[in-house]
Amino acid sequence: RLFSCPFFVSCVVYRMHCLARFHFISCMDPSLGKVDKSSFSDQTLLELLIENVDNKVAVCGEDIHEWKGLIINDRLEIVAVRWCRKDLSGTMRLEFLPLTLEKVYMKLNKLSGEIPKHTLPESLLALDVAANLFERSLDLCRLPRRMETLIAYTNSLSGTLSLTHLPHSLKTLYLAQNSFTGEVCLTNLPEAMEYLSLGENNLVGSLDFTQLPSTLKSLNLYTNDFEGHADFSHLPECLNFLYIGDTMLSGEIDVRNRKSVLVKGSNIKLIK
């Protein structure tokens, strides 16, 4: 009879909710405010990840095998999430990405939130959240050590950018069309870097182009407040795409054997 009593049932449900919250709090690292994600199943982590996301039905399922856009390996570990163009909005809590993830693609939604400083999976190789509404600062010094690709252009990210302690494995960094400020250093980029895009921000200062990685194929710095005379005589041979227009930089660039160099709106002269 007790189980047929609505009041009794509601009390049981409330108690279970409180116990779940207690378990969640007990898994917090009190010194850093981080969650011990190893204490949760992947199903629970996914539910926490999209807890504040609208239109969950576009991706979620009753169990892990029913979720859309997941890639699961032979060990039943989630290794990739592909949620591009899913009409998702609200806050995506990236701090709850499952620990085994290697690739995350969420571009072209209306998601907000922040890119966490400490809790991205160490196994993460690629993160693409382009064309969303992510905000706050981005700590590039604490990216996963094996990361190869970070794409976050066209968001609302802000703060300064430190490019001197990027993962050695990083090949692609796209951060154009945000609100980053301050100066940037190009003399200690990863040796493996191939694509760097920082255009359409509020970056300032002079730039040293003499120590770019020999692997760099594309460099996009247009529409910033960079200024001063620059030495372009040591550009990498494979740098075929260079966009530095709409800046206050000056100097000369030999564009022979380069596919595309755009300097309109700057004081740079092209040698053909």
Rank of each mutant, 00 (worst) to 15 (best):
R82G: 11
C60G: 06
A230Y: 03
L88V: 09
L150A: 08
L170W: 01
L212F: 06
Q177T: 11
K171F: 04
V204D: 07
S89L: 09
L157D: 02
L45N: 03
N55G: 00
R136W: 03
I253S: 04
L94M: 12
K37C: 02
R256T: 15
K171N: 10
H165A: 12
M16E: 07
K117E: 15
L32P: 05
L49E: 00
A176V: 04
I244H: 06
L48D: 01
E191H: 11
G69Q: 04
S89A: 10
W67P: 03
C27M: 07
L239E: 06
M248E: 12
V263P: 08
C185Q: 07
E237M: 13
P116R: 03
E95C: 09
K259D: 14
L99N: 08
N240S: 14
E62A: 13
I72S: 04
F3C: 03
F226V: 02
E191S: 13
F241I: 13
D63L: 07
A58R: 07
R146T: 11
N188G: 03
C60R: 12
D87Y: 10
E148R: 12
M16K: 10
L111R: 01
C141F: 10
E191K: 12
L196P: 04
V12S: 01
A58I: 00
L99G: 02
L262I: 13
R258C: 06
K272R: 13
Y153K: 06
L97Y: 05
R1L: 11
K272L: 12
N220A: 05
L70A: 02
S89C: 08
H23K: 15
P98T: 11
V9I: 15
E66R: 11
C11V: 00
A20E: 15
G90F: 09
N257H: 14
R258N: 07
L133I: 12
V79Q: 09
S266T: 02
L101K: 05
D87Q: 12
R15C: 00
E183A: 14
K217V: 06
S179K: 11
L133E: 14
L219S: 00
N73S: 01
L203D: 05
V13T: 00
F241E: 11
L76P: 01
V9L: 11
C5Q: 07
F24H: 14
S250N: 09
V13A: 01
D231R: 04
T187G: 08
L203R: 10
V57G: 10
T181I: 15
G228K: 01
F134V: 06
C84G: 09
K56C: 03
M28V: 12
L161M: 04
G61C: 02
N220H: 12
E62Y: 10
E114W: 11
V204G: 04
L76V: 10
H118R: 13
T100E: 06
L198R: 03
G205Q: 01
I244T: 11
A130R: 10
Y174H: 15
R136V: 10
L249M: 08
S10K: 00
K259V: 14
L127Q: 01
K259M: 14
F241A: 09
A152F: 07
F232W: 08
A176S: 15
M106V: 13
G199A: 07
L163V: 08
F209N: 05
C27S: 15
T247Q: 04
N224D: 09
L19Y: 14
L262W: 13
